[in-house]
């Protein structure tokens, strides 16, 4: 038993091993995925060379990179269009999702009555709804926004509703005892309590709004009116311009990653002082 070690500052072998393990894990978390990624790209390049695959079928990574550079003007202006739809729809998803959740939280009856509609909207594939939207809505941006919003608002609505309803019973009693109004209870208790849930939903919605925007463009692109990244992909596909296709794909996925990272950072900054999910594990 080495419960009380006389040489308090010297770590016993078990603790030293744990420290070493932790350090290795910290480094590995970054180095490993990076190494695998580089290996995969290298392998991709080699496969192209070994099999002499033509560029219009599978371009080499370097070609994709140079296309990204050469077509930058075209691609980035398209990216801006897609980003605009993505962020606008995310904003609307936040406003709509939280707004509806707050409305639902006012009364069980409202929630029971209207929540099923939200689920119907969520489970019906957007591609199937779009032709209808195409008929009823004229404005191109509105069309795309509506599409992306339908995809993105549900996780926010569902998570925020859950959060607003999972307030500690004693805290609710405490507010009642102090004569809190409905509004005060919402503002000082239920909304802050729902924050971790909302942020979880936001992270999902961020990715979904990008997917929604791209899918909407794809469907709308069939009518040839869109100018976002998705339409560039369709166009490149028609012209067998595989390098540009890959470059556009790369931009979309990079955007998705960035959105996720930014939302994760926001979530961490808001929750870091108090919520379990943001706390470092102690011991």
């Amino acid at each position: 038993m080495t419960a009380i070690d006389e040489r308090a500052l010297k770590l016993d072998p078990e603790e030293a091993r744990r420290v070493r393990q932790e350090r290795l894990e910290r480094i590995g978390r970054w180095v490993l995925p990076l190494a695998i990624m580089i290996l995969a790209i290298w392998l991709w390049d080699r496969i192209c060379v070994w099999n002499a695959i033509p560029q219009y079928i599978l371009p080499r990574p370097a070609v994709v990179l140079s296309t990204l550079y050469n077509d930058a003007g075209l691609l980035f202006s398209a990216l801006l269009v897609t980003l605009r739809i993505t962020f606008l729809s995310l904003l609307l998803a936040v406003v709509g999702g939280v707004g509806l959740a707050v409305l639902f939280a006012q009364s069980k009856w409202v929630e029971m009555s209207f929540f099923p509609f939200a689920i119907v909207l969520q489970v019906t594939p957007i591609v199937a709804i779009f032709p209808l939207i195409n008929i009823y809505v004229d404005n191109q941006t509105t069309k795309l926004l509506l599409c992306a919003w339908i995809v993105a608002f549900f996780p926010i609505l569902s998570n925020t509703t859950l959060g607003l309803n999972s307030v500690d019973r004693n805290l609710r009693d405490m507010f009642k005892l102090n004569g809190a109004t409905r509004w005060q209870q919402l503002r000082y208790l239920r909304l802050p309590a729902a924050m971790p849930y909302f942020l979880g939903g936001l992270k999902i919605a961020g990715g979904l709004s990008l997917i929604g925007a791209v899918v909407a463009e794809f469907v709308a692109g069939a009518t040839g009116q869109s100018s976002g990244l998705a339409s560039r992909i369709i166009e490149a596909g028609y012209r067998l311009n595989a390098p540009r296709l890959f470059a556009a794909l790369f931009l979309i996925s990079l955007t998705g990653i960035l959105i996720f990272l930014v939302l994760s950072l926001i979530s961490h900054l808001i929750l870091r002082r108090w919520h379990e999910s943001a706390l470092k594990q102690e011991r």
Binding site: L171, M174, L177, N178, L189, M195, R273, W274, H275
Partner: peptide, 17 residues
């Protein structure tokens, strides 16, 4: 209501405040 103070079995604090 102001004339009653209540202390619960748990501290029942707002964790974010």
């Amino acid at each position: 209501r102001a004339n009653i103070g209540f202390v619960f079995q748990e501290p029942t604090l707002l964790p974010w405040a």
